[in-house]
């Protein structure tokens, strides 16, 4: 007999409302209960990871991949420009605001996660490798 490949999840299940998230402190929280401080504190104690602030500069439909949106960020103190293509329902965590996506309606349908509308000017939580001294 042959083993069937495991079905790939349609959506990342860690964004599903009720998903259990482990912080770097060991504390467990539901994804919908996370707050900015949880990410900041986790990065502080994780060692090797650093929280960056990523400012949303532009949001537009992806030209290479129809159905996705291209998010243009400036990242960190260096304000490096980074562009990523994501589905419109993909949630980002905005400092002081919480979960936000380009399509809160789709996020609610697919994940059950309440979101704000992600907009240009929002400051998202992102991570990067901590630079060694």
């Amino acid at each position: 007999s042959s083993l069937a490949p495991a079905p790939a999840p349609c959506n990342p299940s860690h964004f599903m409302k009720g998903a259990i998230i482990q912080l770097a402190t060991g504390e467990l929280k539901r994804v919908e209960d996370l707050q900015t401080q949880d990410f900041v504190r986790s990065a502080e104690v994780s060692g090797g990871l650093k929280i960056d602030s990523s400012l949303v500069m532009d949001i537009r439909g992806s030209q290479q991949r129809p159905g996705l949106v291209s998010l243009h960020f400036t990242v960190g103190e260096q304000q490096s420009k980074v562009t990523i293509d994501v589905p419109p329902e993909h949630p980002f965590f905005v400092f002081g605001q919480g979960w936000s996506s380009c399509s809160p309606e789709r996020t609610a349908q697919l994940y059950g996660l309440a979101c704000h509308h992600l907009q240009v000017g929002d400051m998202c939580v992102s991570i990067t490798l901590q630079q060694q001294p």
């Binding site: 990342p12 299940s13 860690h14 964004f15 998903a19 259990i20 998230i21 482990q22 912080l23 770097a24 467990l28 994804v31 996370l34 949880d38 990410f39 986790s42 994780s46 990871l49 960056d52 990523s54 960020f73 990242v75 960190g76 260096q78 490096s80 420009k81 980074v82 990523i84 949630p91 980002f92 965590f93 998202c124 939580v125 992102s126 991570i127 990067t128 490798l129």
Partner: peptide, 25 residues
């Protein structure tokens, strides 16, 4: 009796994007 199912636990860093600033410049 229903056996309790193991609940998946996800690490916090799986929720936020890893955005590596470019080293150029």
């Amino acid at each position: 009796n229903v056996e309790p199912r193991s609940v998946p636990v996800f690490p916090w860093h799986s929720l936020v994007p890893f955005l590596e600033p470019s080293q150029s410049g």
